[in-house]
Every structure is written in C-alpha cells, then in structure tokens.
Design a protein around this nucleic acid. Structure first.
Lengths: 329, 329
DNA sequence: CGAAACGATGAAAGCGATTGCATGGATTCT
DNA sequence: AGAATCCATGCAATCGCTTTCATCGTTTCG
C-alpha cells in the first residue's frame, strides 16, 4: 500500500482529483457534502500533500533559509526561536545553516539554498557588502544587523539605550569610562562604539578606548585585563559574552564588581541574567527582530519587485547588578 | 527570461533533455564532447536543477530534519554544527526545529516534517517512548541520547568517565560526595545518577543525593544552595550548565572552589572552559555523536527495512580547575 | 562478411499536485 | 417558458526532472 495521493482519495470518494485538491486549497469552491467526505477519507488514509509536487507547480518551497554567522554565539538561539515561530505561523519551515564564522561559507550557503527556499535571512553577516549583494541577486533576502541600501534589512539600534547606560553610570558618579571595542569587521561593533563616543563627547567625560577584542569569552578576559591597566571606573563591553569575560577576569583578580568597577554588556542574552553579578545591559528585541525579518522577507517573496525595506528596532537599557555607584557607598 | 531548465539547455545544445539530465546524474553515460558543451552552457545560463522536480520523481528531498528539545541549551550548538557538517558532506540540507522544551511540540514537528524530509534526528527527546514510536512510524528516525529498542539510537555513555571523575576526586582525598540530580524526565540524568551511585557504592564512600534540579543555570544555583547545607566536599552536577550555576552560587556566598568544595560537570560545553574556575567535566564526543547520527539515518533512509542500530559513544573525563585536593593543601 | 554487442542518444511516460477552461444541472430573471 | 446565471465538478495541461526502453550507427568477433 503506497502513500495516499489525491488520486487514491478521489477514487475512494468517486470524485476527481481536482476536487480533492480544491478541498485543501479552496474549500469554499466545494460543496459541503463532498468536502466533508473527502476530509474524512483523507484523514482515514493519513493523507499528506506531497510538498515537492505542490512546489513544482506553485513554484514555492514554503521554506525560508536562515544563515547565522556562528551558531555557538549565545545571541542566536533566541533569534532562531523567534524566526522559527513566526515562520511557522506563516506555515513555512526554516532551513538553518551555520556559517561557522566564515564569510566564504556564508555566500556559498546562500547559493546552495537557492531553489530549495523561497528566500533567505542572513543574520549578522560577515561577508562584504559586495559579496552579499551578488549572492542575493534574484533571491528574496533580508539582512539582519547589517544595513545595505539595495537589500532589505532589519537592524537593532542600541544608540539611545547606550546613551541611557551612560547616563545611568554618570548619575552613579562615574566620570572615567572605558570602551572595549568589538571586532572591527562587525557593523554592530562600529555602531556601538560610535554611539558611546558620541555620548561621552556630549557629556564631556573621559573615554579610554581599548581593543578591538574578539566577540568571545576569551576576548572578554583580555578586555578585562586591559581594563585593569586603566583607571576607568566603568566599562562598556561590546556584548554580553565579552562582558562575562570581563567579569570573570575581574573576579579572578579579586576586583569587586560593581564595587571597584562597573561593567555594562549588550544584547541581554540568557547568560546576562545568570552570571554573578547579573549584567547591566541593553536588551535586544529578539522577538521583534525575528518577526520583522520574517515578515519583510515574506513581503519580498510575494512581491519580488518591491523596494527594499529597512527597519530599525531600538534596544532598551536595563540596569542590573554589574553597575553601581562610584565611589562605592 | 525565465529560469533555465534542462530544456532550455537541451535546445541550446541541440540535444534532448534526457541527455542534459544524464550529464548531471550519470555523466559517464554521455560522450565527453556533449558533456562538456552541456556543462558549459549550463554554467553560462546559471542553471540550477529544480529540487522540487527532482524530488518529485526520485522521492527524496535530500534534506534531513533535526529536532532539538531546546535550542537555547548550550549543549546543542556544537551538535547542530557537527550534524550539519556531516549532512552537507552527503549533500543534504538540514531543517532545524526547536521544540522549546515541549514534548507535544516534538511530535507535532516530526509530523510536520514528514514529507519534507527524508528522515529525522530527534536530539534529547522529552516525549514518552510510546509517543516517539508512534510519531516515527514509517519515517526513518534516529534518536540522540535516548535508547529505544525499535528505533535507531545514538547515545553518549558517560558511565566510565564518571567513574574516572569519582576516582579523581577520591585520589584527591574526598570521601563525602553529593549527587545533584538532573530532571527526572531525562534519560541522561537517570543514567548519570545511576552510574554515580554505582561508583559510590563500589568505592564505599558516602553519597548524598540532592534534587532533582532543572537543567538550567538557575537550577544549578538551587543545587549549589542545597549543596552548602550538606557537608559533602565534592559534588557531581548533572551537566555543565548546572555546574556553572553551582559555581556561581558558591562564589556568591564566598565559598572557594576548589578550596572548600570541588565540582564536576558533564558535557564539556563551551562554557565549561570559560567559567572561572574552569570546569572539571566529562567531554561528550560531539562530532562523533552528530556524524554517527547522520550516518545511521542515511542508512535507514536507503534501507528502510533494516534493523535499528544502536550506538554508544563514551564520554571522556577531563580534569580542570573546579576540582582539587581535600583538605586543601 | 554477417551477427552480436555496444555506446550514445532520443522519445515518452510518469512523479503528485494545481488551475484555467468547459460542462451540465439547478436557479433566477423577464 | 426560454434565456441568462451560477455553482459544483471534471478534463486536461502543466510544472521540471528522471528513467526505461527503443533506436541506430559502430565496433568486434567468429
């Protein structure tokens, strides 16, 4: 007994295959009686439409591709989850691909995905803009955390939240700050550094720039060590992972946080709430980012001609325990 | 100018579509001259075979499904990466689905995947054995970290590594141990607890059983608190995440590790090397687990009738800085 | 030299669905 | 009542590819 098809159902119901197809796609075109019978038989036989066959005629795979630069980065899991949820609501599946931090792999993978998916989301791409543009040619594509004029993009803007972070520290009495810069190839790193510089200049406080450091725990430890060679009392880490490294380094050297130094992270990954002390950071609107990306992509899939959309979602500052008054009360 | 198909290529080359198809699938059947010409024209036109059309006739999607119980658990990223690599080598893609810790979602997702994939890997399933069996009926399936007679499985066995861990601690002078049990629904947790109990009994040392605790950082902090109410000098945490929680709790209360207490984790996730002190733990052979799972699945896809395979890969004990002599020297 | 074997190619039949068009019976309008 | 609509359904083409079988020109062998 091979897999049930619309034909086996049609035969059993004494109708044509077209009618069976309609029952699933345009039920309003079928009389209630037939509709019910077909539905019943389909269930009984355990019928499942063949996606390949459907895809062949509709030209849709009902699947989107998601390329992440590094799946081991704690930033991504929540993003993936949010994207998956949204996609599922639009009844598409997600093909996840990990580029393992390689720009080359990134474009290779969008090439591979082409044809198997209706469009792709590239999260925090490492590739050059030119490479991305080329790779996405003729394929609906949304960039996450990387603006690019001719492609759609959804970015998280932490500028104002970082201002808030600065103000928070300033109010606590801090006057000498350290900027622990992230990887120079990262658009987000550049943007964050820029925001912090701007704030410091506007506030007229001292800003010591260190780095760039890699966006890893280890990079954070190095940043922590570098921090201790300055007399900055508060530091902006590139992201939470780095901030955790800083925390670990300071803890290892017996430097109390926030007693002697305050540290702020960025992104608010799971880790941020769980380290000790819990991280003061900037919450990225993960759900919003993922949902928006999927929606924009869906729009581009349905109207491939349309103009690229650009969305900017703000992060929000959240104070926890890694920042405190200076001098310590 | 619509997408190139084997027909457009065939026309341009003055051959039949069948020949073009053969060039890609059974090149040895085509004369070198024709083969080269077709290849050249295909490249020139940017031809890509349509997976839906191919899938329709071959019945293969060249895709495998991967269901993880919780993508935010640091155990998974490396596993995903390894599975993806292996799948890619067999030129299949991976559809990743996060079950968000829900048993119901797990089986729902394997149902959804059915038809879109050639088979599925379910990693650390939460569902009941009966539910899994039912869900996998007629679909090639491999379970990761959950043995089940009638389905194939690949499991990581830490029994002997945990013995090593015990011996390591015993040699360091520890005589009173705590077992911080993991979630009762987890097969891995049960197995680990069992191994530790067996070792302790064999060694004739005292074992204080605490828990079960959730397999989260927070669960770990609770476990840490519970640990401090006993006079055990060394503790076996369920996994690294939990162990990190324990470490954080002890650090928060000013209890030096490994000075006053030793802690061992399990899995050796990225986190384990990066926390302070770095975790003594049991390294899971991630690459092996992922690769084996994909290979077994491939075999089941190609020979759906075959008997289920069961693979057991041992973890290996690795001593780092969270364990030390007792009493401290 | 004729028969057998072979190698390269083409014609055509699906794979399982969607969908535009035709059909025919029932309903509604004048 | 006859014409005009409308609704439910069927027919058949189509999506792009794979694959079996037939064909036909060459080579090889006895």
């Amino acid at each position: 007994m091979s897999k049930p098809t619309i034909y086996s159902i049609a035969r059993r119901c004494g109708v044509s295959a077209a009618t069976v197809s309609r029952v699933f796609n345009r039920p309003e075109l079928v009389s209630p009686a037939v509709r019910d019978q077909v539905t019943a038989v389909a269930r009984e036989l355990g019928y499942l439409p063949n996606p390949a066959a459907r895809g062949l005629v509709t030209g849709r795979a009902e699947t989107i591709g998601l390329i992440v630069s590094d799946i081991t980065n704690p930033f991504f899991p929540l993003l993936v989850r949010s994207i998956q949820r949204t996609a599922e609501r639009m009844s598409s599946s997600v093909m996840l691909v990990d580029a393992e931090e390689s720009a080359a792999a990134e474009v290779r993978h969008v090439a591979r995905l082409r044809g198997r998916v209706d469009g792709v989301i590239v999260a925090s791409p490492r590739s050059s803009s030119a490479a991305l543009r080329e790779a996405a040619k003729g394929l609906p594509c949304v960039l996450l955390n990387r603006p690019l004029r001719d492609l759609s993009s959804v970015i998280c803007d932490n500028t104002s939240a970082l201002f808030d972070a600065g103000e928070h520290l300033h109010k606590h009495g801090h006057r000498r700050f350290a900027l622990l810069a992230g990887p120079s190839a990262s658009w987000a790193a550049a943007r964050r550094s820029h925001a912090i510089r701007r704030w410091a200049r506007g506030r007229g406080v001292e800003l010591i720039e260190l780095g760039p450091f890699r966006a890893t725990f280890k990079g954070g430890r190095q940043a922590g060590a570098a921090l201790l060679e300055t007399d900055a009392t508060a530091a902006f880490a590139f992201d939470d992972l780095t901030a955790c490294g800083v925390l670990a380094e300071l803890a290892g050297r017996g430097v109390p946080v926030p007693g002697e130094r305050s540290v702020v992270g960025c992104d608010d990954v799971l880790l941020a709430r769980t380290v000790t002390p819990s991280l003061t950071t900037v919450t990225a609107p993960m759900d919003g980012l993922g949902a928006t990306a999927v929606q924009v992509l869906t729009r581009r899939i349905e109207a491939p001609g349309g103009a690229p959309e650009h969305h900017r979602l703000p992060g929000v500052f959240v104070a926890r325990d890694s920042t405190g008054p200076w001098p310590a009360s």
